[in-house]
Simulated scan of single mutants.
Amino acid sequence: MRNISDIIEQHLKTILKQSRSGFVEIQRSELAQKFQCVPSQINYVISTRFSKEKGYIVESKRGGGGYIRIHRVEISSLKDLFHMIVEMIGQQISQQTAEDILARLLDEGLITERECRIMKAAVSREVLSFELQVRDQLRATLLRAMITQIFIHRGGESS
């Protein structure tokens, strides 16, 4: 059985797919009430499952008529997506951010589940057992090289 976070995530993604506006606007308290959970659970789902690395922009307005708005970022070309991902990777990257980027590539259909698992294993802290800064730099280098090959293979430009 899926946990409450998975259920909330799926609910929001379903609403987002059905949205003609390209975004979903929710009130945290109403969603918490619907799923019979605390509002902080909604915050957790939004911050961990709807990140920039996973292809979402989240806006929020606090107060009386407050809302949380989630946009799915649509990329016009593989080249644009490639450049955006390389910029996100930068010179160093945490394991969680790397996994979020890989989840996005999987979501976009650019890598298979198997490729995703292999790439995650290659950049995991268990494999890269170095000092934190060195590990994050090495992870960025490895991830950038693997993603460059994915985009070259898929017909996207890497330059």
Score class of each variant (00 low, 15 high):
4 I>Y: 04
5 S>R: 14
5 S>G: 09
5 S>D: 15
8 I>M: 02
11 H>A: 02
12 L>W: 02
12 L>P: 04
14 T>S: 14
19 S>H: 05
19 S>L: 07
20 R>I: 03
20 R>W: 00
21 S>F: 06
22 G>S: 06
23 F>R: 09
26 I>N: 12
34 K>D: 12
34 K>F: 13
35 F>K: 08
35 F>H: 12
36 Q>E: 15
36 Q>W: 04
37 C>S: 10
37 C>Q: 11
37 C>R: 14
39 P>W: 13
39 P>V: 14
41 Q>K: 15
44 Y>A: 10
45 V>T: 14
47 S>L: 05
47 S>G: 01
50 F>S: 09
50 F>P: 05
55 G>Y: 05
62 R>D: 07
63 G>F: 10
63 G>C: 08
64 G>I: 11
67 Y>C: 02
69 R>A: 06
71 H>L: 11
71 H>V: 04
72 R>I: 10
72 R>W: 05
72 R>G: 06
73 V>Q: 10
78 L>T: 05
79 K>L: 08
82 F>W: 12
83 H>N: 13
86 V>W: 00
93 I>S: 00
94 S>G: 14
99 E>A: 04
100 D>F: 09
101 I>G: 02
107 D>N: 07
108 E>I: 08
110 L>Y: 04
110 L>F: 04
111 I>C: 03
112 T>H: 01
112 T>W: 00
113 E>K: 03
115 E>I: 03
118 I>E: 06
119 M>G: 01
119 M>Y: 08
120 K>S: 03
120 K>V: 01
123 V>I: 15
125 R>V: 07
125 R>P: 00
127 V>L: 14
128 L>Q: 04
133 Q>H: 08
140 A>M: 03
141 T>A: 06
144 R>V: 00
146 M>A: 09
146 M>K: 04
151 F>G: 04
153 H>T: 13
154 R>D: 01
154 R>G: 00
156 G>A: 08
157 E>H: 13
159 S>I: 12
